[in-house]
């Protein structure tokens, strides 16, 4: 029985971890391209979740909800880049950080005000089903499987984009040195907008996936907080780091809940990731796959 329990925790951790990775991806994309730390990532996810839930409930079409959430988040990210972040270009990075923190508070207040603060479900289409799927001794939630699948798809897609496509290379060039990139004929501002739009896309997906699992309300934004242990562990600017960091955090979280909770009465799931984060900061502050500052001697 014991190994089955461990297996269950591990598999669950992996699925959850992949879903963390999806949200962390939004954070990484923005950081990679624009050097801005987006503290509103969780609120992005929450906003997308609320929009999706409202549309799904009104139209009874799951896919319409997803499409509207995607469109809304892309539009929102574009606008955000234009209105709020572009004027801050060339200012100290702290200015951008403070702006995103302010934005987070704004979203957390505004959306419940408009749409109501109650918890809403996002009902999945019928073919996904509610019945757990048995994989050997492990029972899996269909929601989690779908979420993990979507995560894998997008993580692979974005990895390819950055490593192989010319736009991806240009985007990394922008991240490396804006001024030089500009002199290479790269329209830096357009790439900033693109990075934010991509962050909008993954946030929307994250919002739908997490929202359908947990239900949608303001607390969905807390998922965004988990992004920090994930990206600090994996490396702020690495997609593969987001995946590995997500997996580790997901597994650690589940193992902590399974093995430590019974002794202390619960709650370790919520802080175990941060313990890992602090340890990571002490031994490898740039993360497992983060880029080191290249110093030449």
């Amino acid at each position: 029985m014991e190994w089955e329990f461990t297996l269950l925790l591990l598999v669950n951790g992996i699925l959850i971890g992949l879903m963390y990775a999806l949200i962390a991806l939004g954070f990484v994309l923005v950081y990679k391209a624009t050097d801005a730390i987006n503290f509103a990532q969780g609120e992005f996810v929450m906003s997308a979740g609320i929009i999706a839930a409202v549309v799904v409930a009104a139209s009874t079409s799951f896919f319409l909800g997803v499409v509207v959430a995607l469109a809304a988040m892309v539009l929102f990210s574009f606008l955000l880049e234009r209105v709020m972040l572009r004027p801050l270009l060339g200012r100290p990075i702290v200015a951008v950080i403070m702006a995103t923190i302010g934005l987070a508070a704004l979203l957390r207040g505004l959306l419940p005000l408009v749409f109501g603060a109650g918890t809403r479900p996002i009902s999945l289409p019928e073919f996904i089903g509610e019945e757990p799927i048995a994989l050997g001794p492990v029972m899996l939630q269909p929601v989690q499987l779908v979420g993990a699948g979507v995560s894998i798809l997008f993580l692979a897609g974005f990895s390819w984009f950055f490593l192989k496509s010319r736009m991806g290379i240009a985007m990394r060039a922008v991240a490396d040195n804006q001024q030089v990139a500009m002199a290479m004929g790269i329209n830096v501002e357009r790439y900033f907008a693109l990075a934010w739009a991509m962050a909008g896309i993954v946030s929307a997906l994250g919002g739908v996936v997490w929202g359908s699992m947990l239900g949608v309300d303001v607390h969905l934004a807390l998922v965004g907080l988990k992004v920090f242990p994930v990206v600090i562990l994996g490396g702020l600017d690495s997609i593969i780091g987001a995946v590995v960091g997500g997996l580790i955090i997901g597994i650690v979280e589940n193992l902590a809940a399974g093995y430590i909770d019974p002794y202390v009465g619960g709650g370790t799931k919520d802080f175990a990731p941060y313990v890992v984060m602090i340890i990571a900061l002490m031994i490898r502050p740039y993360g497992i796959f983060g880029k080191r500052k290249i110093e030449r001697v």
Binding site: R166, I169, R172, A173, N177, Q179, V180, G185, I294
Partner: peptide
Amino acid sequence: LAQVFEGRRVFEHLTTEENLVAGGHI
């Protein structure tokens, strides 16, 4: 028109070839 910057300013985290690809962006 192209500019070669003082202090070289290569895209440090890109490979040599990726630097060239980025240079041919237009």
